[in-house]
């Protein structure tokens, strides 16, 4: 049997833990991982023993976003196949973002592309110091569609405009400043740093927590509606099939710069 993409456990306090488990590819997600992640959230939401859900991951890097090899293998596939990938991605992020129980995410090492979407979908995020973040999609000719709505909710429109268009790296302190994460702890200190968060959440009435979370979405109108989801899925699928994306994905796999990358001295000047 292949190794499990996500590991699940529930402790006596009612904390359900989802551990993303593809450390050999920096926990990048493919279809199997996304499906397992969505199912895990749904199972924990339905399980009355689970009061709080936490997501963490094995290995050096929290999450590297989509598995580029998986995307590359499918970008030349039919529009139908690409739509189903975009649909799965968008729906999984919706499930994460709108999960009715408190969701805590613990981040180590680095967090890129869709990984930033997992973080933005959480209620409380703790990151080790020095962790690097980037919304990298445009670098590979892709569009971060499925995670953009929750990014706007988490870091605001202007920060989304900047970081999704530049794809630049930012560190945990900057992530804290823009509201993507809530607490920075020393390297190796995630387990300790999350204790008081669990303590507080366990003191709260479970039904009150769920009702509060529901109200936050209803009051701010930040649930992903079907029309926007449909639009995101179509756009995401067609951009992945573009020649630009295939060049971007190829350049990633071949460890070279894509054809559009600026060359020459004129790019070193100030504008």
């Amino acid at each position: 049997m292949a190794e499990q993409e996500v590991l699940l456990s529930i402790d006596a306090r009612g904390i359900g833990t989802i551990t993303i488990n593809r450390p050999q590819v920096y926990n990048a997600y493919n279809a199997d991982l996304l499906e397992a992640l969505g199912q895990a959230i749904e199972a924990f939401v339905d399980d009355k023993h689970v009061r709080i859900i936490q997501i963490r991951s094995n290995g050096k890097l929290f999450q590297a976003g989509a598995d580029i090899n998986w995307l590359k293998a499918n970008s030349s596939n039919s529009l139908e196949v690409n739509r189903s990938i975009s649909e799965l991605t968008t729906n999984t992020f919706k499930t994460l973002n709108e999960c009715s129980k408190p969701l805590v995410v613990l981040v180590q090492g680095g967090c890129f592309g869709g990984g930033v979407g997992i973080v933005a979908a959480a209620d409380i995020v703790i990151s080790e110091e020095g962790v690097e973040f980037a919304i990298t999609e445009v670098r590979w000719g892709l569009v971060a569609g499925p995670i953009l709505t929750q990014l706007v909710s988490a870091i605001g429109l202007q920060n989304t405009r900047r970081f999704s268009l530049t794809a630049e790296l930012f560190d945990a302190n900057r992530a804290l400043e823009i509201g993507l994460i809530h607490h920075v702890c020393p390297v190796g200190g995630l387990d300790k740093a999350v204790l008081p968060v669990f303590e507080l959440l366990l003191r709260a009435g479970p039904n009150a927590l769920n009702a509060t979370k529901q109200l936050i979405f209803d009051a701010t109108g930040t649930s992903l509606d079907d029309k926007t989801a449909h639009w995101i899925i179509n756009q995401n699928a067609s951009q992945r099939q573009s020649s630009e994306a295939s060049e971007g994905l190829a350049s990633f796999v071949e460890r070279r710069k894509p054809s559009w990358y600026p060359r020459g001295k004129e790019n070193d000047q100030n504008y």
């Binding site: 999609e137 445009v138 670098r139 590979w140 000719g141 892709l142 569009v143 971060a144 569609g145 953009l148 709505t149 706007v152 429109l157 989304t160 405009r161 900047r162 999704s164 268009l165 530049t166 794809a167 630049e168 926007t228 639009w231 995101i232 756009q235 951009q239 573009s242 630009e244 994306a245 060049e247 971007g248 894509p258 559009w260 990358y261 600026p262 790019n267 000047q269 100030n270 504008y271």
Partner: peptide, 30 residues
Amino acid sequence: DSTVTKVIKSILGNAQGANRACKKLIYEIG
């Protein structure tokens, strides 16, 4: 100026079509 240059360089390293599509998306979801 160097800050401006750095940001513009980041953008030039990205795919033009994706940047345009991303911009559309930002408008659509905002």
